[in-house]
Amino acid sequence: MKVDWMALGAVFAVSTGVVLGLVVLFSVGLRGMSAREDAREGGGNGVSGTVVAGVSFAACAAVVLFGLYLVVAG
């Protein structure tokens, strides 16, 4: 009875890393959006918030696309 524990472990490790990374990036993006709206209400322009949000969401998309690429390139 041979079970490929390495492969299972890889699934666990990769999934944990990728998902937590995505969740953190996405949450940071949302905080950026919030900061931007706060700044605008306070009379500022909210550029830093916009940049943070933009970079975070772009990073999310990049992670997903890279993952898909890995599967397709298989």
Partner: peptide
Amino acid sequence: IVALLATFLTYRLTRRARPSVS
């Protein structure tokens, strides 16, 4: 397990975000 951690983190990190935005 992953979803549990992810959910916990998500709520934790966005607690202070604006409700309308989140």
